[in-house]
Design a protein around this nucleic acid. Structure first.
Lengths: 110, 110
DNA sequence: CCGTATCCACTGTGATACTG
DNA sequence: CAGTATCACAGTGGATACGG
């Protein structure tokens, strides 16, 4: 049990999983763009861990330029109900938590 | 969203939450005993964070000996469906993940 | 019983630069 | 585009001892 929960540990794991929610197939650069604040290193690291834990699958298309796609495995898919419940829970969060103390305002140009 | 998910980050958060599942009211020492491997420091630290994030409530009974009880707040209760789904997911985990590489065999006595 | 304080090691995370 | 390598740092986590 503890063992299994550790699969989800890591700052970006759940966020990544949400991106793959519902059977989506996403490219590396796609994920990178969709998750503000994540670095390539963290993205690849967490993906690799999820992959080796059997939650995420990885498909390499041998092309130029390279193209790699990620998706939920079957077991990963079975996480979706939990993800869904989590989403619902997060939406009901009190304001103090939502805004937290974390203010990252990436001033997008001018 | 990211902000809200961070409430659940931390090695013992989910495990603690599972102990409080379904409206249980548990004492400090009770929790400590129920979670093998956790230290007092970690238990109190994670409890305090959960408390200040509004997930867990704390009730002090001014007695000798002291008695403090923890429980889920209303918002914490609304996490239960997710916890439930997570439990179901964990039970469907492939064997490789369940056994993982973590073998902690605390040789008891002798 | 329920914490707090301190010390210390480790590992998770992040910025940056580089490669196939 | 996708990924690796390195370095540096902060926070987490663990052991132990002490206090109300």
């Amino acid at each position: 049990m503890q063992n299994v929960l550790r699969v989800l540990e890591g700052r970006w794991k759940l966020i990544i999983l949400f991106q793959l929610f519902g059977g989506q197939v996403r490219r590396f650069s796609d994920l990178e763009r969709s998750i503000p604040g994540i670095s390539q290193k963290m993205l690849i690291q967490q993906l690799r861990q999820l992959e080796s834990d059997g939650v995420v699958g990885r498909i390499v298309h041998h092309q130029v330029p390279p193209k790699v796609e990620y998706h939920l495995t079957e077991w990963g898919q079975s996480l979706c109900p939990a993800l869904d419940a989590l989403l619902l829970w997060a939406e009901n969060a009190p304001e103090e938590v939502r805004s937290s103390l974390i203010l990252d305002v990436p001033s997008s140009e001018t």
